[in-house]
Design a protein around this nucleic acid. Structure first.
Length: 122
RNA sequence: AGAGUUGGUUAGGCAGUCGCUAUCUCGCUUGUUCGCAAGCGGGGUAGAGGAAAGUCCGGGCUCCAAAGGGCGAGAUACCAGAUAACCUCUGGGAGGCGCGAGCCUACGGAAAGUGCAGCAGAAAAUAAACCGCCCCGCGCUUGAAUCCUAGAUUCAGGAGCGAGGUAAGGGUGAAAUGGUGCGGUAAGAGCGCACCGCGUGACUGGUAACAGUAGCGGCAUGGUAAACCCUAUCUGGAGCAAGAUCAAAUAGAGGAGCAGACGCGCUGCCCGCGCGGCUCCUGGGUAGAUUGCUUGAGCCAUAAGGUGACUUAUGGCCUAGAUGAAUGACUGUCCUCGACAAAACCCGGCUUACCGACCAACUCUACUU
């Protein structure tokens, strides 16, 4: 497998509550008016993504789906530029109102910022 | 053609690239109890809704005792039917709205009992009082007429007092003790009559709600049950984070004996039932994983029955099953430029949200032939 596929299989997702707790405990933080994104270095050879879209902030199920899809899509396309870090994406209230292109642009900036910051620690 | 009513269908299309979930299949590798299993890669197929929503009703399913008894509490409320069931649906009745097609209705009981009624009004539930109207009596008084001027008598009127008759009228109010008309009377009154309304027991039609007919009764029974209440019917509780299986730590489960007070659960209370205590014996089941999880009161077609909801028969089909939670992103293109909004155990309904498009039946108005 020399050609890296832009895929999103199960092992690049955060699934266990314990894994989420580890990220929340002490993490690099990057936020704007749409998202707050947490990042921490992991012991694997690839990045992982977790989604924590609160029902309290994003009321309608349609909007929650839209935001999750935008996050996954952005991660999927750019994961090979990332180091071995765990990311957790949290949405803020304003994310429901805008369309997915704006969300994609916002996410791309966050990725870059967090990759750089984590690189300096490791 | 315009305006409208009812019912139904649909919910951007097409092509390409990259992804996600399930499933089938092929190849390779590893393991093998030779059934297969795991990993990687390729290909095929399927992949949100009419409301998936609100969680407002009704069921299935699961556990709580085989879900039990009584009290209490709650729900429903014209009649008949449909249904697994319903507060739903269908048909019918009654009342109301609309020229009409049609639409709307918390539509049982006030003649079992208790309670309530602001303002206004003469009076608000007890039938009377009050104002008013009428008659009679008593004196007083004004005018006119008659008689021989004092004065008397008669007629017409006025105010007062007393004794009675009335309930026609009384600006109100959501509601006023049947209504309208004619007769009747001193004035009046179902006092009498006609029509309307009401009550009542018959008859006719209808399964019934109810309707109609002729008769009888001169009218009794004011409103409020979205006040308590009465009557009839129904309802045990909790929910898929239900529950079941496999299983790291910690400590739980079953059986026998003892104890029978207290606590917890089953229902708010009582009865009743279960669990928990101590000793001995046998041996374990939280995180997590698997399952429950999609074949079902299922969908489609045809036929038959029924006004209809729906039912029955035959044939065909398998149509999401995620779980930090899939059904998407990008590009091109066309058009009428795409609303409201996304499964989470499953069904039947209700309610609410919604850009539109199309189809069918029907109604009204105008015009032409």
């Amino acid at each position: 497998m020399t050609q890296k596929a832009a895929s999103f299989p199960a092992q690049v997702r955060l699934r266990e509550p314990a894994e989420f707790k580890r990220v929340f405990a002490k993490a690099e933080r990057s936020s704007d008016k749409y998202f707050t994104i947490l990042a921490i270095v992991n012991e694997l050879d690839h990045p992982r993504l977790g989604l924590a879209i609160a029902k309290k902030n994003i009321r309608r199920a349609v909007d929650r789906n839209k935001i999750k899809r935008a996050a996954r899509e952005s991660f999927r396309l750019q994961q090979h530029d990332m180091t071995h870090i765990d990311l957790v994406v949290m949405a803020r209230r304003e994310a429901a109102a805008v369309d997915s292109k704006i969300l994609q642009a916002s996410l791309a900036k966050h990725w870059l910022k967090l990759i750089q910051r984590c690189a300096t620690f490791s």
